[in-house]
């Protein structure tokens, strides 16, 4: 089975929901016209990244009754949509969330678990952390979503792999650091790990990263799709806005996993046993 996914590399206006929503709807239309089945927006695509005190004012509930979210749900009747936004939780906390929308319905929400709060990042100050990694079924296979720092922790995609994810969709607002080589240092790092995951987990890995500047920070784009062999299927341009498409051949999963049965031979029971032992030993120390 084949389907077409598209990556929307956007540069959101910081804190301007109305503007960003309009841009989302236009890109969804454009991707649908190009026969894409799914469009993946970057982290916090509806709001911009470094929100600081804007975090609470741009947060929305992921329900059809919300004026902004409702429009996105409607738009998902044409193609599936992954959108990044600030989600208002049930008790007034804010999450950095990714929602998977399909046929006018909310299929799944992932709340960012790892909130970087060091160096240039200050997410924990403004956001509540999610507490789960769950794969979920879509009409194009079983999916796991992660948001930026989530996938810098190897345990996150591992958990999704064990939960059945054959397609990993990563969304980022990754600021560039490091200018000694031909590619921005943080870009090279992210490309390495997304490619490594695709090969090590023998899954498809799509990474959608934003572009543009926020104050001094630059977001480098360079969104990618890797197949289960670690082969690159799509590389969006660095730095510029773009909408790029890739055809995903889900049969590649069977071919790769027959050649390289890492998933078949994986021993999560062993891992659980050892992790339990390590935890026990920590507690008794």
């Amino acid at each position: 089975m084949k389907f077409t996914l598209s990556l929307a590399q956007t540069a959101p206006k910081l804190g301007d929901l109305a503007h960003n929503l309009a841009e989302h709807l236009a890109l969804i239309r454009s991707a649908a016209e190009q026969k894409a089945d799914l469009i993946i927006f970057p982290e916090l695509s509806l709001t911009g990244y470094n929100l600081q005190d804007l975090a609470s004012t741009v947060s929305i509930k992921a329900v059809a009754e919300d004026a902004v979210f409702g429009k996105l749900l409607q738009a998902s009747s044409s193609i599936d949509v992954i959108v990044g936004f600030v989600e208002e939780g049930p008790r007034q906390q804010q999450y950095i969330s990714a929602a998977y929308l399909s046929k006018g319905q909310l299929v799944h929400i992932h709340r960012k678990v790892y909130l970087p709060t060091y160096g240039i990042f200050d997410e924990r100050r403004y956001f509540a952390a999610g507490d789960s990694f769950r794969a979920f079924d879509t009409r194009f296979g079983r999916v796991g979503m992660l948001i930026c720092e989530d996938f810098w922790h190897v345990s996150s995609p591992y958990a999704l792999w064990m939960d059945g994810a054959d397609l990993m969709y990563f969304i980022s607002a990754s600021p560039g650091r490091g200018v000694t080589d031909e590619v921005i240092g943080s870009a090279a790092w992210v490309e390495n790990i997304t490619r490594s995951y695709s090969g090590l987990f023998t899954t498809f890995v799509a990474h959608s990263n934003r572009v543009g500047f926020e104050d001094g920070l630059n977001f480098w784009g360079g969104s990618t799709v890797h197949d289960p062999d670690g082969k690159i299927l799509l590389k969006a341009p660095y730095d510029d806005k773009s909408l790029t498409l890739a055809t995903i051949d889900l049969n590649q999963l069977r071919r790769t996993r027959t050649r390289l049965p890492l998933l078949r031979d994986e021993r999560p029971d062993l891992l659980v046993k050892e992790l339990n032992r390590i935890q026990r030993e920590k507690e008794t120390k």
Binding site: G176, V179, D181, E182, I184, G212, F213, G216, D239
Partner: peptide, 25 residues
């Protein structure tokens, strides 16, 4: 200690920074 930078990369980044920060206002 190597302070050298990739000049193409930096040139590109800084010109985009100037353009972005000036035009967005």
């Amino acid at each position: 200690i190597d302070l050298s930078v990739n000049t193409d990369l930096v040139n590109n980044l800084l010109t985009r920074f100037i353009r972005s920060e000036i035009t967005r206002t």
